[in-house]
Structures are given as structure tokens and as C-alpha cells.
Amino acid sequence: MERDDIIEYSLDTHHSEEEGKKIRKKIIFVTVLLTVVTAVEVGLGIWASGMDGIKWEMVKWSFIIMTLVKAGYIVMVFMHLGDERKSLRYFILAPYALFILYLLFILVSEANVLFGIRELLRLS
């Protein structure tokens, strides 16, 4: 039986000792970054406990931004998507972003309407 896992693309994925050193350096950098961002998130989460209003909104958005930064580093460096061809990168990320943003838009606007209805029912 012919094996389909032995093909030219895979045989090419080798690198030398020096290249390995450079890659490991990058891995350590990303590790430190992910750890620091997580620590900041937890600290902020404890500090902002019980906060509300505009302050909480700001904390919330900073959580979301930090999460996206972390996700970006994991996908681009750890999953090596940053080293793949541009065509592969876009055909993975673009449809996903499109669907999820659409779903979020629908659910967030629906939820806000339903929240408003609950408020109305409580007031009446």
C-alpha cells in the first residue's frame, strides 16, 4: 500500500541547529509574554472585582484586547500559521472571522433587546 504521509512537503520540514536556536529564543519570548499577560489579567480581574459603569467597560475591553493578543501569538507562533503561505493563512482565518463576527452581532443585539424586555416587565 502506498503511504500518503510520505510526501515532499513533509520531507522538507527540517532545520539546522542554528535555526533551531533562533526558533527556541522566539518560543521563550512568547512564553514570557503569555505568562505576563495572564498575570496582568488575573491581577486586573481581582482589582476590578465589583466594579461597574464606564470603568468596568474599560477593564472588560482591555481583557478582550489582551485575549486577542494572546490568541494571535498562539496561532501565529505556536501553531506556525505565521510561517505558512499567505493563501493558507487567509483561507483559515477569513471565513472563521466572518462567521463569528456575524454570529456575535446577531446574539449581542438580540440579547440587548431581551434584556430591555425583562427590564420593562419588571418595571410594569
Binding site: Y96, I100, L103, L104, V108, E110, A111, F115, R118
Partner: peptide, 20 residues
């Protein structure tokens, strides 16, 4: 990722609906 995205999006839906 779409399954997880759907789950987390619906979590957000519930959070906003029962925000109080």
C-alpha cells in the same frame, strides 16, 4: 473552533440577557 465559538457566543448572549 466554530463549535467553541458558538458556545462562547451563546454564553455572551445569556450574560447580556441576564446582565443584572
Amino acid at each position: 473552533a466554530l463549535s467553541f465559538g458558538g458556545l462562547l457566543a451563546s454564553l455572551g448572549f445569556m450574560k447580556l440577557k441576564y446582565a443584572d
